[in-house]
Design a protein around this nucleic acid. Structure first.
Length: 489
RNA sequence: CGGGGUGUAGCGUAGUUUGGUAAACGCGCCUGGUUUGGGGCCAGGAAAUCGUAGGUUCAAAUCCUGCCACCCCGACCA
């Protein structure tokens, strides 16, 4: 069995090697940018497929806006521009030429009159368009989504978790009332929550961001936070109530039923290839990736064990009908009869890639009319009768999906601690990590100081928490609610 | 941007202290044989102007200088 570096000993080494060995992605020659390999991309495509359907089912339509944003658009919404100013890639020229020494150089004569910013998000160009598209309440709501790449010039990058260029989806909506926009913000947070918990099998905490962590340009940022195995928190998705900030900045008004001019209400929401990182870090073990069945591009692999063509033929007679009936049930199966790889090699390959189920069929199984089945999540092998196999496998996939969520939930709960003093806070953060649920006085100063001293930040001000009175662990001032602190990615 | 480190075959490294046959090892790759219930074994083979530019020297992967790239730790962030 293949073994990666141990998670407990060196978490980031484990993560990097897993990404490489599972053939998900690699560091490219381009600073801070990754190459997503075909297996990794097939997982992302599966995520896209499910999310895309969820967006469409909630009334959204896909569009595509340009990669470049004229610099002047950016300066219209100041808090937004400030938020991203330090990490924008800028296009200044439009032509290259061959120098006298034979090198390719930027043609100094081809300087752009107005620089183009490579989008860190698309709000500016979306709202520039909305101004032209929206005149009347009849034009609203506008419910759009786009699948795109964005660029943020990051100082330090990690595959999937933080790269300078990443893939994501960004929803942009415009509404005629504050309430409708808030409802939309909440609805999309629900979509992300369902996706995370039901598909990725990752339990999440729903809540608001503190003003410090809020998306620059948003009135209120809603988020879902997930706990990774090393006790660090990862934001899985965000949904922003933008209020009228962008409509005012871009002068987007509509005439309502009573003939009054009003500014439009807005939301935006997104999730990215970071979900890949979440999935890896929430579930995988020292043998490699573990894919939740509902997101696995391949749910089951069949491996034959044979020494000659006669045996292989006999195996195929049994295996191919099984494969067909599984596919009929919507289960994605591959039958790996490659002769140039030893079967032992194949076992390791699918194990490290996290394929949920594996079947082995050899002479023994054919004689006994059974198959050997292996569950990746528990690493347990069993024999199953060939009769009724399709049902057993469907049930197993369900069970794996549930088990993975349950396991992650138990871990998350273990890694959530109620804290009532700053001493405990520092001690637990150091010893165990995870979410620290603690009273906070609501001030930015306190949040900043705690972050500076401990590196833990407020990940989330959770919804649905009982209102309790307490004292801020840092300042001792009165507080009405516990918030979740954690170190984060 | 500050501190530290590393560049030698596709990947991972040894060799650098003390200059001396233009280079070793593991994985991977190719060929042939053999084997087959958890990454098989044997034999043979291909593949590196030692990051780059210059300098010192009879002689440089090794010493000196500049440059470039990447990694780690901070500051910044989804």
């Amino acid at each position: 069995m293949y073994l990666l570096p141990q998670r407990k000993k060196n978490y980031s080494k484990w993560y990097n090697e897993l990404v490489a060995k599972a053939d998900l992605a690699e560091i490219s020659g381009v600073r801070g940018c990754m190459i997503v390999k075909s297996f990794g991309f097939s997982i992302w495509e599966k995520m896209q497929e499910v999310l895309d359907k969820m967006f469409k089912d909630t009334g959204h339509k896909n569009v595509y806006f340009p990669l470049f944003i004229p610099k002047s658009y950016l300066s219209k919404e100041i808090s937004y521009a400030d938020g991203f100013a330090k990490e924008c890639a800028v296009v200044t020229h439009y032509r290259l030429k061959t120098s006298t020494r034979g090198n390719i150089i930027v043609d100094p004569l081809a300087k752009l009159e107005e620089e183009l910013i490579i989008r860190p998000t698309s709000e500016p160009i979306v709202w520039e368009s909305f101004r032209r598209w929206i005149q009347s309440y009849r034009d609203l709501p506008i419910l759009l989504n786009q699948w795109a790449n964005v660029v943020r010039w990051e100082m330090r990058t990690r595959l999937f978790l933080r790269t300078s260029e990443f893939l994501w989806q960004e929803g942009h909506t415009a509404h005629d009332s504050r309430n409708e926009a808030i409802t939309e913000t909440e609805k999309m947070l629900e979509v992300y929550t369902e996706f995370s918990e039901k598909l990725l099998a990752i339990p999440v905490i729903q809540g608001f961001k503190s003003s410090m962590e809020r998306f620059s340009g948003a009135k209120q940022t809603y988020c879902i936070e997930a706990m990774m195995q090393d006790g660090k928190s990862l934001q899985v998705g965000t949904s922003h109530f933008l209020g009228q900030k962008f409509s005012k900045a871009f002068d987007v008004k509509f005439t309502d039923k009573f003939g009054e001019q009003n500014y439009v209400w807005a939301t935006s929401w997104g999730c990215s290839t970071r979900l890949m990182g979440a999935m890896i870090m929430a579930h995988s073990d020292d043998h490699g990736l573990i894919l939740p069945p509902k997101i696995a591009p391949i749910q089951l692999v069949i491996i034959p064990i044979f020494v000659n063509q006669i045996q292989l033929d006999a195996i195929e007679k049994v295996v191919l009908p099984i494969k067909r009936s599984l596919e009929k049930q919507g289960i994605s199966v591959i039958y790996d009869n490659r002769e140039r790889y030893s079967w032992g090699c194949k076992l390791n390959e699918y194990e490290v890639k996290g394929i949920p189920l594996r079947i082995i069929v050899g002479q023994k199984e054919i004689e006994n009319r059974e198959v050997e089945i292996f569950r990746r999540d528990t690493m347990v092998k069993n024999m199953l009768p060939q009769k009724g196999l399709v049902n057993s496998i469907s049930e197993l996939l369900e069970e794996i999906q549930k088990n993975m969520f349950q396991k992650a939930l138990v871990r998350r709960n273990y890694l959530t601690t109620e804290i009532d003093s700053y001493e405990d806070f520092k001690e637990i953060l150091d010893a165990k990590g995870g979410f620290l649920s603690a009273f906070w006085d609501g001030s930015i100063e306190t949040e900043e100081k705690i972050k500076k001293e401990t590196t833990a930040s407020i990940r989330c001000i959770p919804f649905n928490r009982k209102q309790e009175k307490g004292l801020c662990i840092f300042s001792g001032r009165p507080s009405f609610q516990r918030v979740f602190f954690a170190k984060s990615y």
